[in-house]
Nucleic acid binder design. Structure first.
Length: 641
RNA sequence: GCCGGUGUGGCGCAGUUGGUAGCGCAGGCGAUUUGUAAUCGCCAGGUCGUGGGUUCGAUCCCCACCGCCGGCUCCA
């Protein structure tokens, strides 16, 4: 896990915000275990309450109910849909049962007894099938070794098949630290071909304060939702006629363009050459690439007549192969680095779109590198230098995940082992052995990969950048280069994107910064606020000087409202710097600089202040205070509002 | 695609037990010329997501479709 501070997304005061409810010598693992026990037990209690609630309407079948990172859920097959009143009722009942203080009694049972106890529970029978066959645990995951012991936990007459652990007594749980949150559908065993069950989510903590803190965090997340910020800051929009296809508005497009510009500049320095290729290609290209076989469901198709169909590109790689194949290459030309920032379209199943996080049209800072097999390692090193530069620049928390050979794969094991070894080596060297995870079998079918994972405001994880090794596409397209001995060899292709989808990156960036973008990305970097109309000439004069220093400024005239109103508006728009211009500034020839992150410098030398603004922007500082730190007497760190 | 919810002026929301709708902010106009988070007044703006059905009459009831929200599945 690579992390560092983010621009102003922290530092709010909150109910119970200061280290909720655990002492200093309290080990994190102990706390985790206690929470797991509480939550797991809450799931059982909720299952009992739910059965009571729905029992009169028809049969209730319980499935499984594990603890989660912040709470718990339980899956049921119910005689009718869950409505909000049900959740209220269930929550009250859960609290009641907890308060009654029931023992949770563990019992080990043999298979026949277990079958008997859960005779009316088809899902439990299936769980038993799995456990007894010795292959699956109750989440359906593969197990190693002997079949485990079967155990049940019973409280208040409610029996559940469960390995535990649980609290000893429901009295160990604080009823007012438990809340039933929501209901949603979920497939049995996560398999869309199996029945849809109803899942009820809840959250549970050690204390009321911890619960309040959690709920406060959720409301904060709502405030930082990039969709909301996109509207408020007028960055992007959607229209019903193009679901999941963002319209980038002037300010939003400005930000996105700066991101692209940064990418272009840094890649050009490193030998990447940018290309742009057709948006649509005739179907035969997609047949060659294998997309028509493996990816049609995600492709927009354009039928031209009964003989021809075009496919809108969901990826850039096939066209990169075509570009490569236009001539003969020597080993001296490798690695050949072709970047491509074109728009891609992927048709997604309805119900999966999520603001900018999951869209149907987007662009990637994509590149395809044609490389000789023995050059993979060094090239990966160069890629991770870019990764570190980018993610260091934004200072956003992320983690890396390596995906290894899947069960169904192309090519031979030796090549895979070699590639995985190269990836691992580069990760250990440039990131650190403990700073990435391995997802066994999670690689692409054509090669292993490393993904950059980030979290959104609601703590959901998203794949951002990716680095993938591909041994298959160059083969399918007959790509070759001439080796020193005159023979031909197929190059390996490295697919890589650093931001990943620019749209998704923008979403996460907005949520991490709560809209307070780093000044170098801001569509307006400085707001010039003349106190009265007579100060407007000074404002225009300064704007011109800022313009010469490549600083984006806007004058907000006095006619736009009181100074207070204009300051408020500038803050809501997250403008990084505000210059209030009045009599004092006219008289002294100085500037009063107010910083978005808090703090103000009055009487600053005009030339010096502008130089500092320019420096902060050019150096891509993440917050406004860095460049003025030595001048500030009272710096508050925190996001606006 | 599946489960549940939802759709009223640019945004955030009321509302009509069925008789074609209001509020705040934003916007326009006028007054106010203001030293760091909202100056005051007036005005304008909506075929209540779309298409069917029931009804004398539908924004409200029913059906279908579309979008959006939360999950599941899938994924950058």
């Amino acid at each position: 896990m690579t992390s560092s501070s983010s621009a102003g997304s922290q530092g709010h005061s909150a109910p119970g915000h200061s280290a909720p409810g655990h002492s200093r010598d309290d080990l994190p693992e102990d706390r985790e275990l206690r929470l797991r026990r509480i939550r797991h037990s809450c799931a059982h209690v909720m299952a009992q309450a739910t059965r009571e609630r729905f029992g009169s309407d028809g049969p209730v079948h319980i499935a499984t109910g594990p603890p989660t990172e912040t709470g718990f859920y339980y899956d049921f097959e119910l005689p009718r849909s869950v409505v909000p009143e049900d959740l209220e009722w269930i929550e009250e009942r859960v609290k009641q049962i907890i308060a009654e203080g029931h023992q949770l009694v563990r019992a080990e049972v043999d298979a026949a007894t277990a079958r008997e106890i859960f005779a009316d529970e088809p899902f439990k029978q299936e769980v038993l099938d799995g456990i007894l066959s010795g292959h699956l645990d109750d989440n359906g995951a593969l197990l190693e070794g002997d079949a485990p012991v079967l155990s049940t936990y019973t409280h208040n007459g409610f029996v559940d098949l469960c390995a535990g652990p649980h609290v000893d007594n429901t009295g160990d749980i604080s009823p007012d630290a438990v809340k039933v949150l929501s209901a949603a559908g979920a497939y049995w065993r996560g398999d869309e071909k199996r029945p849809m069950l109803q899942r009820i989510y809840g959250t549970a903590w050690e204390s009321r304060e911890q619960l309040d803190h959690f709920l406060w965090q959720r409301s904060e997340a709502e405030r930082r939702d990039h969709r909301k910020l996109g509207r408020e800051l007028d960055l992007f929009m959607f229209d019903q006629s193009a679901p999941g296809m963002p319209y980038w508005l002037p300010d939003g497009w400005h930000v996105l363009s700066r991101l692209l510009e940064f990418s272009r500049t840094e890649h050009a320095k490193r030998g990447y050459r940018e290309i742009s290729t057709p948006l649509v290609n005739e179907k035969s290209l997609w047949e060659t690439s294998g997309h028509w076989e493996h990816y049609v469901d995600n492709m927009f198709q354009i039928p031209i007549d009964e003989h021809r169909t075009y496919g809108v590109k969901p990826m850039n790689c096939p066209n990169a192969m075509i570009v490569f194949n236009r001539r003969t290459w020597s080993y001296r030309d490798l690695p050949l680095r072709l970047s491509d920032l074109d728009v891609l379209h992927r048709h997604e199943r309805s119900g999966t779109l999520q603001g900018l996080l999951r869209v149907q049209s987007f662009r990637q800072d994509d590149a395809h590198i044609f490389v000789a097999e023995d050059e993979i390692g060094p090239e990966l090193g160069r890629i991770f230098e870019i990764v570190n530069l980018f993610y260091g620049t934004f200072g956003m928390e992320h983690r890396l995940r390596m995906g290894t050979r899947p069960t169904s794969f192309l090519g031979d094991v030796a090549t895979w082992d070699h590639a995985e070894g190269a990836l691992r080596e580069i990760l250990d060297g440039s990131i650190g052995p403990d700073r990435y995870t391995i997802a066994e079998g999670d690689g692409a079918f054509y090669g292993p990969k490393i993904d950059i994972i980030m979290r959104d405001a609601l703590d959901r994880e998203w794949q951002m950048g990716t680095v993938q090794l591909d041994f298959q596409l160059p083969r399918r397209f007959g790509c070759t280069y001439v080796k020193a001995d005159g023979t031909r060899e197929t190059p390996v292709v490295v697919h890589r994107a650093i931001y990943g989808s620019l749209e998704r990156f923008m979403a996460v960036l907005l949520e991490h910064t709560a809209g307070a973008l780093p000044p170098w990305l801001s569509p307006c970097q400085v707001a010039l606020l003349p106190v009265r109309a007579e100060h407007e000439p000074l404002a225009r004069d300064i704007m011109e000087e800022l313009g010469e220093a490549s600083i984006l400024a806007r004058v907000v005239d006095a006619s736009a409202g009181s100074l207070g109103a204009r300051v408020r508006e500038a803050r809501l728009q997250r403008v990084p710097y505000m210059l209030v211009l009045g009599d004092r500034e006219v008289a002294g020839g100085t500037l009063a600089v107010r910083l978005r992150e808090g703090g103000e410098v009055r009487g600053a030398d005009r030339g010096d202040a502008i130089a500092r603004l320019r420096g902060a922007i050019q150096e891509r500082h993440r917050t406004t205070d860095v460049a003025f730190a030595d001048l500030l007497t009272d710096v508050e760190v925190g996001s606006p509002r």
